[in-house]
């Protein structure tokens, strides 16, 4: 069977070692691989995978993109948060102090899209060798000049927050695949009843269980197409 689309193939085509080095059978893309991106373009997805894997690199635990963080960000930008739900966007928009918070005339999805475009115009992170990526992100984390129309630190902060959210949010949001983030810290998840154990000084052995445990969160992996 031919996939018309493969997220795995898109991200592998950026040529980075991080993704291809370990592609476990139970990989995030087993779940979402054949689904087209809800919001991102392929270029944006590759760029996000590159920066997210600098934020959360692979070690004994999966990297951000291996845990489905790009899928998570894609869905977030396509839905309420990305589209400005709960965000007061009435003008005018004079510049404020950092203490006054978000004063941009755009939604988070627009900020991310514009920011990636501006960043890629300078350097396409996804095409850099791994070691140069780290140097680039380090410099970017201290950048004072705006990136396109946006304050660089606002853009950077939003990316970092989204990446960490995607690594640790319940798997129903497509990140934290196979409970990668929860296994890493030892968080047992949404099914919680600790009245008997709260005073103990002992490790918790139970494996994590998310909101949709036994449904989406633990769905049997689809085979990954070799043709993708």
């Amino acid at each position: 069977m031919h996939h018309r689309f493969s997220r795995r193939a898109v991200l592998l085509s950026m040529g980075g070692a991080a993704l291809s080095a370990s592609m476990p059978v139970r990989h995030a893309f087993a779940q979402m691989d054949a689904e087209p991106w809800a919001f991102l373009t392929d270029d944006e997805a590759r760029w996000l995978a590159a920066i997210a894997d600098i934020f959360i690199p692979e070690d004994d635990h999966p990297s951000a993109s291996q845990a489905g963080v790009v899928d998570y960000i894609d869905m977030q930008l396509a839905t309420g948060y990305g589209q400005g739900q709960g965000l007061y966007l009435q003008g005018p928009f004079p510049e404020g102090t950092p203490e006054q918070g978000w004063q941009l005339p755009v939604t988070p999805a627009e900020l991310i899209r514009n920011g990636i475009a501006a960043a890629r115009e300078e350097t396409d992170l996804a095409t850099l060798p791994d070691t140069d990526r780290l140097t680039w992100v380090e410099a970017f984390s201290k950048r004072e000049d705006p990136i396109g129309d946006a304050p660089a630190q606002t853009f950077f902060g939003e990316l970092l927050s989204l990446t960490k959210e995607g690594y640790f949010a319940d798997p129903i949001y497509l990140g934290n695949h196979d409970y990668a983030g929860w296994r890493m810290v030892g968080f047992p998840g949404a099914h919680a009843y600790f009245t008997e154990r709260v005073g103990d000084n002992a490790p918790t052995k139970q494996p994590p269980m998310g909101i949709a445990h036994g449904q989406l969160g633990h769905r049997a992996p689809r085979p990954i197409s070799q043709e993708g």
Partner: peptide, 24 residues
């Protein structure tokens, strides 16, 4: 539970909080 135990929806996206689009 377990649906209420959704950190993203309620703690980060403020699912139970007032909508600033209406009043801030």
């Amino acid at each position: 539970g377990p649906e209420e135990h959704d950190e993203l929806k309620y703690a980060l996206r403020h699912g139970h909080m007032q909508d600033l689009k209406k009043e801030t």
